[in-house]
Amino acid sequence: ELSWTAEAEKMLGKVPFFVRKKVRKNTDNYAREIGEPVVTADVFRKAKEHLG
Rank of each mutant, 00 (worst) to 15 (best):
E9H: 06
K22Q: 15
K48E: 10
G13E: 15
N29P: 01
R45S: 07
A41H: 04
E7Q: 07
L12Q: 01
D28V: 08
F18T: 11
W4P: 00
R32W: 06
P37H: 13
G35V: 03
V43D: 01
G13K: 15
V39N: 01
L51F: 15
A31V: 03
D42C: 06
E36H: 08
N29R: 12
T27G: 02
R32P: 01
D42N: 07
E33H: 11
T5L: 03
L51V: 09
F44E: 01
F17H: 10
E9R: 09
M11H: 05
S3L: 15
V19P: 03
H50P: 04
A47T: 04
A8P: 00
T40S: 06
R32F: 06
F17C: 07
L12A: 02
L2W: 04
V43R: 01
I34R: 10
G52N: 14
V15A: 06
E1P: 14
V15E: 10
K10S: 11
A41V: 10
M11K: 04
H50V: 12
D28T: 08
L2A: 05
R45G: 05
G35E: 05
L2M: 11
K25L: 15
P37A: 12
E7D: 08
V23R: 04
F18H: 14
L51G: 11
M11N: 03
K14Q: 12
K22M: 14
K46W: 09
G52P: 08
V38S: 06
M11Y: 05
V23I: 09
E9I: 15
I34P: 00
R32Y: 06
R20L: 04
K14W: 07
K21S: 13
D42M: 08
V43C: 04
V15T: 06
E36F: 08
R45A: 09
G13Q: 14
R24E: 03
K10A: 14
M11L: 14
V15W: 08
P16F: 05
E9A: 08
T40M: 01
V39D: 00
K25T: 12
E36N: 04
A41T: 07
A6K: 12
A8C: 02
P37T: 13
E33W: 13
D42W: 09
D28K: 02
F17N: 08
D42S: 08
N26C: 08
E1M: 11
E36M: 08
W4K: 00
K10L: 13
D42L: 08
R24I: 04
H50F: 11
K25V: 12
G35Q: 06
K22W: 15
K48I: 13
E1H: 11
L2P: 08
V39I: 08
E49R: 13
A8K: 01
F44K: 01
V43E: 01
K21D: 15
E33M: 15
L2C: 05
K25I: 14
T40E: 02
E49K: 14
A6M: 11
E7G: 06
T27P: 00
V19C: 10
A47N: 03
A47K: 02
E49S: 09
K21I: 10
K48A: 14
K10N: 10
T40V: 01
V19Y: 14
F17L: 12
P37V: 14
L2S: 04
A31K: 01
V43N: 01
E9Y: 08
K14G: 07
V15M: 13
R45M: 12
T27K: 02
W4M: 00
T27C: 07
S3I: 15
N26I: 15
P16V: 04
L51R: 14
L51N: 10
E7C: 05
E49I: 12
H50M: 10
K21W: 14
V43S: 02
A6F: 10
V19G: 09
